[in-house]
Structures are given as C-alpha cells and as structure tokens.
Design a binder for these strands. Structure first.
Lengths: 242, 242
DNA sequence: CGAGTATTTGATGCAGTTCAACGCTCGTGG
DNA sequence: CCACGAGCGTTGAACTGCATCAAATACTCG
C-alpha cells in the first residue's frame, strides 16, 4: 500500500531538487514503511528517543517546546517534504515535540539505519546536513523576527513564509492557502497572546492585506505584507527531499 | 606555527567527545591553516559565500542577523570549539554574520574539501550533522525563552547557558567567567532594549544573584538563577570537535 | 440541542520602549 | 600632560504595545 519513492507525489514539485535514479533507489531502500496519523496526535515527544524518522508526505503539523510553567513556543510549522526526528537520530533525544494539525501521512525510516545510510550514500548524508542547516536558518530568522519586530510585522512575516512554502508545493490557488492552525498556535509561534494576535489579525484585515477564515488564508495585498514584514522577498529555495 | 590537531589544547576539555587516532588524522588533513583575528573584526558576513570554514580555537564572538531597518538580533554567542560557516558550506551562503568580540584564533578548513570529507569519513560527516542539529536545538531554545519568558528569566537563562558552556571548557574559576560582550549585545540577544537590560541586570544584582562588571560575571546564587530561568538544570552535553 | 472549543471584542494595568541626561574610562592629538 | 571626544554603562521620567482579565458570540460534534 505504501507509496514507492519512484512514484512519490512530492518529488515533482518545484520545491524539491531532482534526485538521480541511484539516490531514489537508496532512499527507497532506506524507507521502512508508511504511517497514517490523526489530527491532534503527537508524532514526536520532547525528551523521547524515537526509533523512527519521518518525512511528511501529506498534511500539516507543528513543532513546539514547552516551559516548566506550561507556556508553549511553537518553533515551526510542518509541511509536506519536511523531515522529522533528525535530532533524535543524531543527538540522542528530541528537543521538541511534533504534533499533527490535520490528518497526516508520513514516510517512516529506521533510526538504526541512519549511520549505514551516511556511510553508503555520502551525497544523501550531505542532503541531511543541508536539511539540518536549513532548519537552523529558519530558527535564526524566526528568533530575529520574534525578538525585533512588532506584532504586525511578525504576523505578516509568518504568513508570507508559509505562503511561499505552500506555493512551492502547489498548495496555493488564487492567492489562497490552507492554514489548519488555531489562532492560539499562531500566537504561540509569534510570542504574543491569543487576544493580541486576534486584534493584530483584525488590523491586517481592515488594511485589506489578508483574510483568515475557516482554515484558509487569502492574500489580498502581497506587496503590502512584504513591506510590513520587512522581508527581502526571495521566495523558497529548492531543497532536497528524503 | 599552526597547532597540530594532535596537540589541540581544546581536545582534552571535558566538553568534547574523544577522537580516535584515525579521526584525528583525518581532521588534521582537512585543516588548511590557522587565522588570527582582531576584536571587532567580521569573520563571516550574511549573504556571503565564504570559501572557508572555521573552528574556534581561542576567543569569543557572536552571531547575528540584521533587519532592513537596522535592528539586530544576536542569535548566539560563539565560544572555543564552535564550528563556523557550515551554512555557507552546505547551503550556498551564510544566513547570518559572525564577528569577533575578543581577539580570536581560528582553525581554517577548505570549503571545497567538505564533500570529500563527507565521503571519506562518514563518522565525521555524522559529527558535522550533529553540530548542525545542536545549533538547531539551541536556536529553538532561544526562541522559546525570547518568545515566552520575562526579561529577568531570559537574562538568567542566557547567563546560565554561557556559564555551563564556559565551565565545560575550563574557563570558569570561582564561579567567575569572562563575558567580553557589551550590554547592547546581550540586549540584542534577548530581544530587549539596552536600557531595560541594564535595569534587569541591576535587579538581579540587588537580589544577590550575580554581578557583571569589567567583562566578567560572578555567579553568587546559581540555584536562584536556575529557578528564575525555569531551566531543568542539565549542564552541557558532550559534543564533537572539529 | 447542549457541551466543549475557538473566535471576537472591550476594559484595565503593567512590562518594557523611548527619550534624555550624566558619569566613567580610555585613546588621541595638541 | 591635559583636553577632548567616543564608546559604554547607569539612571530617571514619560509613554505605549501588549498582556491579562472578563464576557459574549460563533462553531463543531456527539
């Protein structure tokens, strides 16, 4: 029942760097199975040392950390093509949790095979390092915006970021994208209160920049958001896929 | 003149995972030279695609990103044993800048050799990925504290974090460590204004938790800081050294 | 249709920003 | 050898973005 890597529906999306036949086959060998997960389920748990790694085939989720007093920081949103569990694989345990926001399909890899994979496929080892560096890059940017930007700027940045990613995997139609998160999730991602996020959202709506209703966001004025967010509008760069 | 890896003064510190003779020799072969840098100099520049990677042998610095409006986020402090330039090596360009806060000595590696290194030394490739994942971990934690904690908590967290790291490389004596940064640097790291950082510092001093004068920090009450910061007091885990 | 979950809105207070001024130290040049 | 300015740290005062509290209004699903 599991999808063969050769037939992977993600591979052809413009976001991903094409793979050679060899790479494709190596990845297929590495793949241990497939997993279907319900919305709301926890995929990986902070502090755990999962025996498995995953690539997201379908669906969306979020990564987060929790402080002892219960406060939660959403550190990233999770989209198709993302690789989950690398931390547990190279360091011993996960440093954050990952949970599903929609129903998700995951490719499963075996953690015990990772080192063999590194040894036998150095170009793919390189790709895995690339993914780790990309995550590092993203978190540095998130930290920068959360630390330095106003509430409006942070929200505009986050929306644009998600928009670019979803666009590059064909999930945007007519400037509208799915956004299956609660306002509380977005607030926790941007380091602000739920109430303030809601009011900030209302401001952007009044300014005709975007609308977020019914788990969908429509971008009315991309240029306006770009200015508000102070991003150099680059768009997504291609990334390797496992 | 350059230090041989075999004679590296860092290697024996408790922070670093011991290397086999093979690894040691491979690293020595990979090393292209040594670089001495003055305080204040820029080591790597955001957007540049440096031909070289570095391991910090001696001295301290900081990583930062700048927004178009000039605001700066310090994303991490840089200590002996840190590996710099990985982003430029795997992705094409640096996503942040690195500058020296003291005079520094750097081991230099050649970017063009990285892939060869990956192919010929999979266990070291794994270590490099480990370092990238560790950086990811750190940034996730920083984001969490900046996003969710009060000014006092953030400052306590940062001080404890640096303290643990410096302790594990033998740079702490009598609960005192060097901290060659300006208050502005720390403010930019924690996402608060210089004025507020200064006042927060005064509070911690009045509460007899720490003193920061003359580029040195003395910890008076570690337990108090741990409570304020809400950290699970783990201490540094061992890391690979390149 | 009722209970739980998510969104929206108003009111109040405070943590943290911004503005402003002053002191200390140190390097440089007259 | 002193004068001067630049950089950094310190402190006070006024203002504000955002958190917190509170409550009403949708929405979802058994």
């Amino acid at each position: 029942m599991a999808v063969k890597c050769q037939a992977c529906p993600l591979r052809s999306k413009s976001l991903f760097i094409p793979m050679s036949d060899d790479e494709l086959q190596a990845t297929q060998m590495f793949k241990a199975g497939e997993l279907e997960i319900d919305a709301g389920a926890t995929i990986l748990m902070e502090g755990s040392s999962s025996p498995q790694l995953f690539t997201v085939l379908r669906g969306m989720g979020l990564r987060y950390k929790t402080l002892p007093d219960g406060k939660r920081q959403v550190t990233n949103f999770v989209f198709p093509g993302d690789f989950l569990g690398l931390q547990a694989a190279v360091m011993d345990r996960m440093q954050h949790s990952v949970e599903a926001s929609t129903r998700m399909t995951l490719c499963v890899f075996d953690r015990s095979e990772v080192f063999r994979f590194f040894r036998d496929h150095p170009e793919r080892a390189f790709d895995i390092t690339w993914l780790a560096a990309a995550e590092e890059h993203f978190l540095g940017e998130a930290l920068t915006y959360v630390g330095q930007q106003t509430a409006e700027g942070r929200l505009a940045w986050a929306i644009l970021k998600i928009f670019a990613r979803l666009k590059s995997i064909g999930m945007v139609q007519n400037a509208t994208m799915p956004l299956p998160y609660r306002q509380q999730d977005m607030a926790d991602a941007l380091g602000m209160s739920l109430v303030h996020l809601n009011k900030t959202l209302a401001k952007l709506r009044e300014r005709q920049l975007l609308t977020w209703t019914d788990r969908r966001v429509h971008i009315h004025d991309r240029e306006g958001l770009v200015q508000l967010a102070m991003v150099e509008d680059d768009g997504e760069t291609m990334r390797p896929l496992l």
